[in-house]
């Protein structure tokens, strides 16, 4: 464990909690892509099946349980409790165009052709693109609530910190997981455009709105 990984995990946790609180406090999931949240629930479920087979640390186990629990709670709030506020018309990204190729890729390119390992690989690839329905929704409506941009910023920061973590682990632990690194870099690149808007608009007190 190094400081970049720890702060990355905490940033990830902050993102998840910001989103839950936003929905809970405003009693609304307007502007939130339910599809992205379902993808994240699938990501955590398929990646953390090793909860049942291997124990790494108390920290590792508790974070996994919290991530999974929060992911399902978010999906529940969007599709059940605050369903009336869900903006389904604007959440029109075709997720099958992500899930099917990602599934195929996980079967073709993995560390080991075993059930758990393929599911882990699938979750890594899927996570790298799971935010696309949310970004698509923002580009479609042309705007995002400020709290939603804080959520996205924390999520992107988590990915950026993980890259620094991998550089650290490469030099100091000779640790190197090509699948995680490539997918992680792809995922971080997806946030670059958003980071630019966040710094130039949101941090200067303006609402994030895109030119028509």
């Amino acid at each position: 464990m190094n400081i970049f990984r720890l702060t990355g995990d905490l940033s990830h946790l902050a993102a998840i909690i910001i989103l839950l609180l936003k929905i809970w406090k405003t009693r609304s999931c307007a502007g939130i892509s339910g599809k992205s949240q379902i993808l994240f629930a699938i990501v955590f479920t398929t990646r953390y099946l090793d909860l049942l087979s291997s124990f790494i640390s108390l920290y590792n186990t508790s974070m996994k349980v919290i991530y999974i629990g929060c992911a399902y709670a978010t999906v529940y709030l969007i599709y059940m409790k605050f369903r009336a506020t869900y903006d389904g018309n604007h959440d029109s990204f075709r997720v099958e165009f992500l899930v099917v190729p990602v599934g195929g890729l996980a079967v073709l390119i993995n560390h080991d052709f075993s059930f758990l390992e393929i599911l882990w690989t699938f979750s890594i690839y899927l996570e790298s693109v799971a935010i696309l329905p949310q970004l698509f929704m923002i580009s479609k409506t042309g705007e995002a609530e400020t709290i939603t941009t804080h959520y996205l910023f924390c999520l992107g920061l988590y990915r950026a910190l993980y890259i620094v973590n991998w550089i650290w682990r490469y030099y100091f632990e000779a640790f190197f997981d090509l699948i995680a690194i490539v997918a992680g870099v792809v995922q971080t690149i997806l946030y670059c455009d958003f980071f630019y808007l966040y710094v130039t608009k949101v941090l200067k007190g303006k609402k994030l709105s895109l030119p028509a």
Binding site: D9, R47, D50, N60, H111, F113, N165, A180
Partner: peptide
């Protein structure tokens, strides 16, 4: 074993 990677990251 080669394939039995222990994924210790979240």
């Amino acid at each position: 074993a080669d394939g039995e990677a222990l994924h210790d990251e979240l």
